[in-house]
């Protein structure tokens, strides 16, 4: 028997599911994904590993609906992506993104960078942003600009930005890839704490096997396929 919540999502189903996801670039000459099947449960921490170019980031982009697959299907809590009326709204409400390159806007201060995803909502989120920045240990640098921050600090701001709209899923693409080991350790610990305290589902792309071992489950990819 099917049970739907108020927003039309099925309860007691995996938060993310994919079936035979295929993606290619350069008019089909480069195959990024070759029929990826995936199932992620609520609250799970999944690490996606594999060599460069195996399709890890492409998979993350497809899950974040930043890109359309050539073939295959994606579901969020049982609802197919293609059936969603407003994919931007889905991203805004349910997905938090953290990138290796941080992607902070250099001309906005820390607080405004965190508030950026909340601008379309029109809601006053400054208090919530300050609260998040306190949780990532950046509340003392609200008015500073990205250029004034270290790599680790920038990533902490980027994490606060990813969480401003209280998403269900955090998609992190090599979040420690540009950091030294100390900063990387701090960021990982932070992500782990936030995941547990906020009940987040987290998918993290990483090259680092030590980091991957901390996940609930590891997915290994090669040549656009999930091999383990």
């Amino acid at each position: 028997m099917r049970h739907d919540d108020a927003r039309g999502y099925r309860v007691n189903t995996p938060i993310l599911t994919t079936k035979k996801l295929t993606l290619s670039f350069d008019e089909g000459r480069i195959h990024a994904l070759n029929g990826v099947d995936l199932r992620v449960e609520e609250g799970e921490f999944v690490a996606i590993t594999g060599p460069s170019g195996c399709g890890k980031s492409s998979l993350l982009h497809l899950l974040a609906a930043l890109e359309e697959p050539d073939a295959g299907q994606r579901w969020f809590r049982g609802c197919a992506y293609e059936d969603m009326d407003d994919i931007a709204c889905f991203r805004q409400q349910h997905i938090g993104l953290v990138f290796q390159a941080f992607h902070l806007l250099p001309t906005l201060n820390v607080l405004d960078n965190v508030l950026l995803p909340a601008v379309p909502t029109g809601r006053q989120m400054a208090d919530h942003a300050c609260d998040l920045l306190q949780r990532v240990g950046m509340d003392h640098r609200l008015q500073q600009y990205p250029a004034q921050l270290s790599g680790g600090e920038r990533q902490r701001v980027a994490i606060a930005r990813a969480l401003i709209n209280q998403p269900d899923i955090l998609l992190a693409d090599e979040p420690t890839g540009s950091l030294d080991s100390v900063s990387a350790g701090y960021v990982l610990q932070l992500l782990s704490e936030l995941r547990q305290s906020m009940g987040l589902t987290m998918l993290m792309v990483t090259h680092d096997t030590d980091i991957a071992r901390q996940a609930d489950r590891q997915i290994c990819m090669r040549d656009g396929r999930v091999i383990a």
Binding site: A64, L66, D86, A88, C89, R91, Q92, Q93, I95, L97, H103, L105, L116, P117, V119, P120, R161, N165
Partner: peptide
Amino acid sequence: LLLAVGWRKAM
């Protein structure tokens, strides 16, 4: 980035 964090194209 704006589109990735949930901004609509119209926005």
